[in-house]
Design a protein around this nucleic acid. Structure first.
Lengths: 280, 280
DNA sequence: ACTAAATACTGATAAAAGTCATATTCCCTG
DNA sequence: CAGGGAATATGACTTTTATCAGTATTTAGT
């Protein structure tokens, strides 16, 4: 509760998505909203509608959701709701009740816990094709993390009842979900080990490589394809912002990085990997 | 690989379970082993055999596995292999290939990663009724953690093929597995947040309360029902052994604990909870 | 019960990382 | 494009925690 409000007010953003989600909670299956969305005149919505069908979605080969049997995929297609979030907007908030799952069509999302003292801890970074909001939904709890768009993001929302129903009838999808959860769990447990045992310097190097794995490079082949504040990097690494600032310039001095505002260019990935001191 | 050997040699124990497991890998479905096990004359095995049937197992109301449909449970019953491990014995080792899942009938098991520098990080504590070894099996990888018995432990081993087959046909069990994984994931992500944001003192208090939640008290109602070395507590909290020793005696001085070798008595749970500084 | 080894404990010291204060720069908005 | 707020950067300092060295105690095996 407290966390919720803090979060909203800290970011000083009017949380449209909460309003929208609240509405979706009541009307999500009604034709009204679908028509409303489809009739939206915003030209930027145009290409979203071109990607409307799961069957022709760019993420159809990578997304777990698209491993559902064809018949179910069609049903998901018919009932999903398109949604877009501007950078900084909240998809859902820690403490809220899940109404369904989100499938990222394009964009980037961070998933973060709020620590007891109000400090953010980023637990996952998500990209297009990734599924979102399934953890809370599956364990039947409220969200224990908040999801915030890191850039303009297009999302397909699949209502809870449908998702659960498909999951209960499609063993293959269930299995893929279990794989997904197992992988998440593995990553989380690895992070626990590193957080407990590795110094900040190594964790930062590892995090930068992890960001590279997740979001890749821009066209130039060296610039990380995401803009994160020093604060966000700190909340990802699990340390103080000042430490990140100092270490980033240290890495720069050592010729591993080039820094240009929020742009981070990895100029020597080999040394960075060495700095991460990863055995596996 | 390296980790594997280190682990074995560090504990300087002959790893019977590895030998047994290697055999199980080849012969696990053959009647030979079952007969062999059932004919074992060790009197301590007696009560194990009394608990042989999942349908009458003491854990049948708590274990996820027992939420399988009756027909499948019977099949699991027929094909599972009973096994027992002495304190310190290894159920499986990081890096090994999973041949099935383990259901703890009685006893206690720790699940731990080996950090890059060889330091142990305990990621989960397991008790009777808990399932073990499913993470690696589901994501189709080798084990990324080792499982070691914290005391004499009786385990039912369910072969991989059977487990997967039941999972693929029993949607209800699948769903329970997803819940289990979701809960594990939640706990892991919470641990990440606390590891990143809380001081050692608070983490130790939290860990002691967590141990209490997991294993409960002994008959006296205050002694934690498990014996962990200071080293193991440190590997659970994610800190140095000396810090744990110092903090434990600090807690004792503050009247929260009584210490008697590896016995830990919680004499003031309220203060301990306050020391943990948990908001939720 | 005795011995060797492992574990537990203590103090001194060092290193790592956090905090606080204070520039400086960036970027958004009027 | 100027001004203000936020983000970034840097230095001094403090706190926390790890490490090391040495001693005491417990545990396990013969």
């Amino acid at each position: 509760m407290r966390g919720n409000y803090d979060f909203h007010h800290a970011s000083k953003k009017y949380c449209h998505s909460c309003v929208i989600n609240a509405c979706l909670g009541y009307f999500r299956l009604s034709g009204i909203i679908k028509v409303f969305l489809r009739k939206a005149k915003d030209p930027s919505m145009k290409n979203v509608f071109e990607l409307t069908q799961c069957q022709s979605c760019e993420q159809r080969f990578t997304s777990v959701l698209c491993k559902a049997r064809a018949e179910y995929l069609t049903e998901i297609d018919d009932h999903k709701i398109l949604n877009q979030y501007k950078k900084g907007q909240v998809l859902f908030n820690e403490g809220a009740s899940p109404f369904g799952v989100y499938c990222i069509s394009s964009g980037k999302v961070k998933l973060s816990h709020l620590g007891d003292d109000g400090k953010e801890q980023i637990v996952r970074l998500l990209r297009d094709g990734d599924l979102l909001g399934y953890r809370a939904l599956l364990s039947g709890e409220r969200y224990t993390a908040s999801a915030v768009a890191l850039e303009d993001t297009h999302v397909c929302f699949i209502p809870k009842e449908l998702f659960i129903r498909v999951l209960k009838s499609d063993a293959n999808l269930s299995f893929e979900m279990m794989k997904l959860l197992s992988n998440d769990l593995h990553k989380a447990e690895l992070k626990i080990t590193h957080l407990a045992q590795k110094p900040v310097r190594e964790r930062l190097a590892e995090t930068l490589l992890f960001i590279k794995e997740t979001y890749g490079y821009e066209g130039d082949g060296i610039t990380l394809n995401v803009r994160l504040s020093r604060d966000e990097i700190a909340n990802l690494v699990g340390t103080a912002t000042e430490s990140i600032i100092r270490l980033l310039s240290e890495f720069k001095k050592d010729g591993m990085l080039e820094l240009d505002g929020k742009k981070i260019k990895i100029t020597n990935a080999k040394d960075l990997l060495r700095a991460a001191n990863l055995q596996d």
